[in-house]
């Protein structure tokens, strides 16, 4: 049974007014336990609207969302419990920090779940460990931390709820490369260790290429592709036609192939490209297509 399933999900802003706008239309997809799905699409393509449906922050105009096979809007009064199963980290999550200490801020979610203090303590420490926050930082005010540390506190705050599905909306936006690599690696480790389903919304194709096993592409509020990462990036022309980039090495591979060289399937990370090109480039290793 899929952890998350949507059926014909549609959402319209300000229905029945001149400002009416279809944000997402007829979205049907499933995510299985342990999936790592990248969600891409240009600004306004409906990515954020979609993910806000998965934890019940938005109520669909039509269609359904199932978490573990149960329609989340079957009992609207219990919608809050869905948010503990499907954790959502918003863009620039450090802007939502409010507690006196980083520890208390991470504990906010678990506390709302009604857990006992021991359990909360255990979860806060575990989450802090995942995002690499040192013990002594936990007792500091979140406002005294550096930008990257704040971001990690905010992400830990959602991880501490130990959701079955973790959704991150642009978790690396605005960070420098070092901070970006660190957070991305932590998310990967977390996913591996807990077999959590992760949905990663990002503009950064190289982040997606490095982490996601599957990619969901949105355009004008609809799903236009949902496939293995390599398959999606092999449709580079289609991606470019809807205003999306493909990783630079993918473009290199496409050009090489166009020039008649059999370089094998598309690479989308530097490592893949390196492994595939090296034997071809070594003297005598070249082969014609």
């Amino acid at each position: 049974m899929p952890v998350i399933e949507t059926r014909n999900l549609s959402y319209t802003y300000s229905p029945g007014t001149p400002f009416r706008k279809d944000a997402i239309t007829d979205i049907t997809f499933t995510a299985q336990k342990g999936d790592f799905i990248g969600i891409i699409g240009h600004t306004g393509s409906g990515k954020s609207t979609l993910v806000q449906h998965l934890n019940g922050l938005l109520r669909p105009t039509s269609g359904q969302v199932f978490v573990n096979g149960i329609d989340i809007w079957q009992q609207p009064k219990k919608i809050r419990s869905v948010r503990f199963k499907v954790g959502l980290v918003f863009q620039y999550p450090e802007h939502q920090l409010f507690e006196e200490t980083a520890y208390k801020d991470i504990a906010f979610g678990p506390k709302n779940m009604g857990l006992n203090d021991d359990e909360i303590d255990k979860r806060v420490r575990l989450a802090a460990q995942f995002v690499g926050l040192r013990e002594e930082l936990l007792q500091k005010s979140p406002f005294e931390l550096s930008g990257g540390e704040k971001r990690r506190v905010a992400i830990a705050g959602v991880m501490a709820m130990q959701p079955e599905v973790l959704i991150l909306d642009e978790p690396t936006a605005g960070l420098d490369p070092r901070g970006r690599d660190m957070i991305l690696q932590q998310i990967l480790d977390y996913q591996k260790q807990n077999q959590t389903t992760v949905l990663l919304v990002s503009h950064n194709m190289e982040d997606i290429a490095r982490s996601a096993k599957k990619v969901l592409v949105m355009n004008h509020g609809r799903i236009v592709m949902l496939d293995e990462t390599a398959e999606v990036f092999s449709r580079a022309h289609e991606l470019e036609s809807i205003g999306l980039d493909v990783p630079a090495v993918t473009r290199i591979f496409m050009s090489l192939r166009k020039s008649g060289f059999n370089v094998g399937p598309n690479a989308y990370t530097v490592k893949q490209a390196y492994d595939r090109l090296l034997p071809l480039l070594k003297k005598g290793g070249g082969s014609n297509a």
Binding site: I252, S255, L256, S259, F261, L277, L281, K283, G284, G286
Partner: peptide, 11 residues
């Protein structure tokens, strides 16, 4: 791409 092509062609 240009640099890679050159080597591939030489090979």
């Amino acid at each position: 791409t240009t640099a890679l092509l050159q080597i591939l062609e030489e090979n």
